[in-house]
Design a protein around this nucleic acid. Sequence first.
DNA 1: AACAGTGTTTCATTAATTGAAACGCCCGGA
DNA 2: TCCGGGCGTTTCAATTAATGAAACACTGTT
Lengths: 259, 259
Amino acid sequence: MPTATYNNSMEKGLQLLTLFTGDHPSQRLAEISREAGMPKATALRFLNALTRQGFLRKDSAGAYRLGYRLIELGHRASDQLDLRTIALPYMGALRDALDEAVQIAVIDGTEAVYLEKVDCRQPVRLFTKAGRRAPLHAGACPRLLLAFAPDPLISLVLSERTERRQFTETTPTDPNQLRALSEQTRRTGYSLSFGELEAGSAALAVPLRDYSGNVVATLSVAGPAERFGPDRVPEILAQARHTAAQISREFGFVPIIRS
Amino acid sequence: MPTATYNNSMEKGLQLLTLFTGDHPSQRLAEISREAGMPKATALRFLNALTRQGFLRKDSAGAYRLGYRLIELGHRASDQLDLRTIALPYMGALRDALDEAVQIAVIDGTEAVYLEKVDCRQPVRLFTKAGRRAPLHAGACPRLLLAFAPDPLISLVLSERTERRQFTETTPTDPNQLRALSEQTRRTGYSLSFGELEAGSAALAVPLRDYSGNVVATLSVAGPAERFGPDRVPEILAQARHTAAQISREFGFVPIIRS
DNA sequence: AACAGTGTTTCATTAATTGAAACGCCCGGA
DNA sequence: TCCGGGCGTTTCAATTAATGAAACACTGTT
């Protein structure tokens, strides 16, 4: 059962970090042990080690919380993607131009992960968090990433054996429908979604490319669906395309001039 | 040697993450093995496991880079500190008011870690990164945190047996000098530093408090030293204090009214 | 006082980790 | 073209360190 090409003990310890969610930011040993299905002594050892390395910290009530080392490493990972130096200022400008949330997401494994979000200033807004994940079949960002993904990944996501969760009434789950949507996205260069992940929300996503010309990320404008009517979508698309071109250029993308 | 109350294998694996710095964002197995002083087979197992859990990712050249899971967890840790929801908007306003870098830092173990930074817009600016660390004896932020730290930590930092690195000519390292500076900081409610960590830089730091009334973090304004002359420092201090009061209030701090 | 729940420590067992060595592949230099 | 060096990967015997049950001390509630 154990395979010699990984370190299963470390992986079990790392998985404890996933227990700390927005709903459960602070947890004590017994709760962690129960939720992880792990004996208290084993869990305590992992927690002690994670705490010593700064990945967790213990608060004054004796409960564990995510530690500052994660913020440090998160910033470092972000810096290495040039998110703060290149993408964030343009995202801020796009937010200012449209007053909608602006997000950037990438593929990680078989999911999309939203790496950054710049919030709009309107009281009614899309309430999601940077760092969240979504499957590749639902939502403007995930679907845009899927459309430009390598064929083996597309096949896997659209396979009859892969379960595609239906979040809302408008979540596309049928493989043929998703293939058609992907083809449309590749042809038009953007994707648009209404309530596929959260009812009442909408998002428009465009690709971000790097020096290789490949789509490496997606930039999206997202907000309440009633602000994404047919009179406004063209403007959102134009602004998003403009910003994506700026970011892509700084990522080293050189557009091919069509003659 | 091995102690049963930690998980030393996991800790060794986690320490590989520290090899990925701004200077070395991308590394291959042999280099990692050499730098960590670890046999290739062992390092490969850790790398495979860290990659499977999303903490590292492998690029097209077969080199490892920090993974998206770190960004996700970094955001989650940051959210749990209310950095993005509470502190960042105020930091942005303070940056706009003064056009200097604004940072927030906390104590982690025996160091200060800068959790967030909002950059100024001037061409000549303080070039540091969010996520960086500094010892508690040098710099306005670390020294402010030290001044309000628990006595055992102060004693440890100022101990004759603790080495206090001299970064520049103005770095204070003498325990008596640091005690005097701490006392002054507690009395005046702020700390001011010129070139203690980086020559030519300056920073002014004020405390952030939470519902318990304790100093839990520090807010600083930082930039090139020539912009922190005696004619300007009072304004910087007033603005920083105002912003710190706003943030502290949202952290639940209730100021005691003096009669 | 009794009980439930917590976090911590101990220790025998054994599972998993470890590192040396072999292997296949690639690249650059002679 | 050949060879050597370096790379990443796999195998396997040795042994180390992880594991989990159980005991313990402490706290809070009834």
